[in-house]
Write a protein that binds this DNA or RNA. Structure first.
Lengths: 347, 347
DNA sequence: GTTAGCACTCTTCCGTTGAGAGTGCTAACA
DNA sequence: TGTTAGCACTCTCAACGGAAGAGTGCTAAC
C-alpha cells in the first residue's frame, strides 16, 4: 500500500529504525551508524541486521549515506515519512504555555507588538529563524482619515484602514489652510468614504470636490492599493543568529545563502502565500518547495486568524535537519495563541 | 610635534608609504610587502629602504605584521592617522548624487520610508552594513488622538505625537460606547492635552474626568514615555549580506559576532547616542570605541536633522579595513540629503 | 530470518617536507 | 648619513604519505 504522498508502507521494525536514525541525526548532526542504533537504543537485533534494514530503507529512498564507510542520513522523503507517520507529538509543557499566553496578554492592546512577540516566541521555542506576518484583512476597507496642520503649508495626513493599518503622508499645500478647514475637509471625506473598499472609492464621481479632497483621495487610494501587496519589511523576524549556530552553517557560504533567503524575502513570501490557502500546520521539507535555494532548508508554517477577515501567517525556517515535533508544536501553539488574540477582535 | 589625537608627525615619505599600505591593504585584504609598494606604485627607492620605513612606522604603532615573513597591516592608529591626515576626499559622482536626491524626492511625503531608503542608499554606496534611525523630536509633545469604535466594546486608540510618531492601542471597554460619544471624548482630551509634554500631562489634575478619559490619558503617557527610549526595532538596517561577503567573515564565528552586534543593537545604540552629541561625520575605528566586541569593526556615523527639534542618526558598520574616504563621503552625503528633507519640514 | 566475521573503502588526522614569501640585518656604497 | 644589494632566517602553506579508524557490504554459517 502506498499513501497519497508516495510514501511506502514499512514494517514495524523499519519504522522504528527510521525513526531512531532521524532522531539521532537531528540530535548529533552526524551520519548514524548501525552500531549506535543497537547500543544506544537497545534494539533487540545485531548491527548486521540493522545494516540490512538500513540498506532496505536506502533502497526506498528514505535514507542515504555520504560515502561508503559513513552512517546513514535521512533524505527529504525520509523526513516526510517521519513527519507523516512516525513522529510522536510533543506538546509544550503547560508551564511554558501559560508563560507565553501571559506575555501575549500583556501586549494585547498593542497590535504592532503581536508579530514581534510572535517571532521572538517562535524563535525561542524552535531555536531557529522565525517569521510572523502582522495580521491584516485581505480586502480591507477605509475607516478614517485625519488632516493635521503641521506648520505653514505642511499637513500630515493620517489614514486608518479597517484592519488597523495606519499610514501617514506629509503634504505640502499651495496655500496655508487653517486647522478648522482641514478638520471640515477630513470630516466630509470620512462621511463620504468610510467603509468603502479601494475599488468603490475609485468609482465615486468627484464632481464638486475641492482640489484638496481629490488629492487626499488620490493618496488614500494609493495607500490602500499599496497595502494589498505584502511587504516583506512588515514581517517580523527573529532567531536568525540562533539558526546560524547550527553546524550546517559552518561554511560561511551556506550562512550567506540562508541569510539571502531571509533578507530578500520574495521566495518566502511566495511560499507563505501558498501556505495561506490551506489551514493547519504545513511542513515543507527541502526540495519539496520546488525552489533550488530552499533545497537544504525546511519551512514549518501555519496560517492564523479569521479566514477572509483578519489573517496572517507565521512559521519557522531552518535546516532540513530540524526537530520537527518541537517545531510543529511551536508553530501550532503560537498560531493558536494569535488566533485567540484575534478572536477577541472581530472586524 | 604631536597632534591632540596623539598621532605623530611623519616625514613626507612615511606619509606616502603609510597611505599606500592602507590603500593596498584595504583593496586586497592581504598584508602588504615592501616590494609591492615599489613595483606597483613606483616608489623611487628600493624595497630595502621601504622596509626601513615600514619598520619605523611599525615602531610608531601605525602598522604591524602578523608574523615574521608577512607584509604590513595597518593598526587602528594607522587608520586614524590616515583618516585625519592622509586621506584624499573622494566626492560622489554628481550623476549619482542626482539619482539619489531624486529617489528621496519621490518618497518625500512618506516619512516612514526615509530611514529605509537612507539605509538602502548607504549600504549600496558603502558596500557594508548601514543603519539609519528615523527622525524624531528629542522632547516630543502630544499632538492629537482619536478614538475609533471598532466592534462591540472594542475601541482603537490612535495617538499622534508632534514628531509624527503614531501608535495604536486596542482597548476593551466595560460597556458599548457609541462613536459620537467617543468622538466627544477624544475632542475633549485633544483640547486639554494638545501641545503638552509627557511630564506636563502627568502633572494635570484629573478631577471630574471620566474613567475612559483617565484610561486613555494613562495609555497616552505610557506611549510617550516608551517613545523616549530609542527602540532598536525602529532603526532601519540594510547591506548586512553585502558586509558578510568581506573576507574577514570567512570564519562563521566572526560573522556571528558581527551579526550579534547588529541584532542586539544596544551596543550600537550607545555609540550612536554618543555620536548624536557631536556634529559632522565621526569615525570610530576598532578599539577606539572602548568596546571589546567592536575591536575589529569601524563605525562611520553622522547626526542629521535639526538639533533639538527633529533629529536622527545614521551610519555604517564594517570591518576596520574599509575604504574610509568612500564611507565618509557616503555618510556625509546621505546625512546631507536627509537634512534637506527635514529642512522642508519645520516642526 | 539472523548473525558473526572479515575484507574493503573512504575519511581523517598527523607528521614531514619543501617551496616560497618577506623580513631583518649587515656590509658596502654614494 | 641615507640608501642599497645580498643573504640568512623565520614562518606559512600546500602537498604528500601513511596509519588509524570508522562503518559498510558481503558471505557463509546458524
Amino acid at each position: 500500500m502506498v499513501r497519497s504522498t508516495g510514501i511506502p508502507e514499512l514494517t514495524e521494525r523499519r519504522k522504528e529504525i527510521l525513526k531512531l536514525v532521524i532522531q539521532e541525526y537531528v540530535h548529533t548532526a552526524q551520519p548514524v551508524p548501525s552500531e549506535v542504533l543497537v547500543q544506544k537504543y537497545g534494539l533487540p537485533v545485531s548491527p548486521a541486521t540493522v545494516r540490512n534494514e538500513l540498506a532496505a530503507l536506502e533502497e526506498l529512498g528514505l535514507l542515504t549515506h555520504p560515502h561508503t564507510s559513513a552512517g546513514r542520513v535521512p533524505t527529504d522523503r525520509g523526513y516526510r515519512c517521519f513527519v507523516e507517520q512516525l513522529m510522536e507529538w510533543t506538546p509544550l509543557p503547560s508551564e511554558e504555555r501559560r508563560t507565553i499566553r501571559h506575555q501575549f496578554f500583556q501586549v494585547r492592546t498593542q497590535m504592532e507588538e503581536w508579530a514581534r512577540l510572535g517571532a521572538a516566541t517562535l524563535a525561542r521555542l524552535s531555536r531557529t529563524a522565525a517569521i510572523v506576518s502582522p495580521p491584516r484583512a485581505p480586502y480591507c476597507c477605509f475607516k478614517h482619515l485625519e488632516l493635521l496642520s503641521v506648520y505653514d503649508t505642511r499637513v500630515l495626513l493620517v489614514i486608518v484602514l479597517q484592519d488597523g493599518t495606519i499610514r501617514q503622508h506629509m503634504l505640502t499645500l499651495n496655500e496655508v489652510v487653517p486647522q478648522e478647514e482641514l478638520s471640515r475637509t477630513s470630516n466630509r471625506l470620512n462621511e463620504r468614504l468610510a467603509g468603502l473598499s479601494a475599488s468603490e472609492i475609485a468609482g465615486l464621481p468627484q464632481e464638486g470636490w475641492t482640489p484638496l479632497e481629490r488629492e487626499v483621495t488620490e493618496l488614500l487610494l494609493a495607500t490602500m492599493q499599496q497595502r494589498d501587496r505584502w511587504e516583506w519589511e512588515e514581517v517580523a523576524m527573529d532567531g536568525v543568529l540562533e539558526a546560524l549556530s547550527q553546524p550546517e552553517f559552518a561554511e560561511i557560504e551556506r550562512a550567506r545563502q540562508f541569510l539571502e533567503i531571509l533578507e530578500q524575502g520574495y521566495l518566502l513570501l511566495e511560499l507563505l502565500n501558498e501556505a495561506m490557502r490551506r489551514s493547519g500546520v504545513q511542513v515543507i521539507i527541502g526540495a519539496e518547495s520546488q525552489r533550488e535555494q530552499m533545497r537544504d532548508y525546511s519551512l514549518v508554517v501555519s496560517r492564523y486568524g479569521l479566514a477572509g477577515r483578519m489573517e496572517g501567517v507565521l512559521g519557522i525556517l531552518g535546516p532540513t535537519r530540524m526537530p520537527y515535533p518541537r517545531s510543529i508544536s511551536a508553530v501550532h501553539f503560537v498560531a493558536h495563541v494569535m488566533n485567540d488574540l484575534l478572536g477577541q477582535l472581530p472586524e
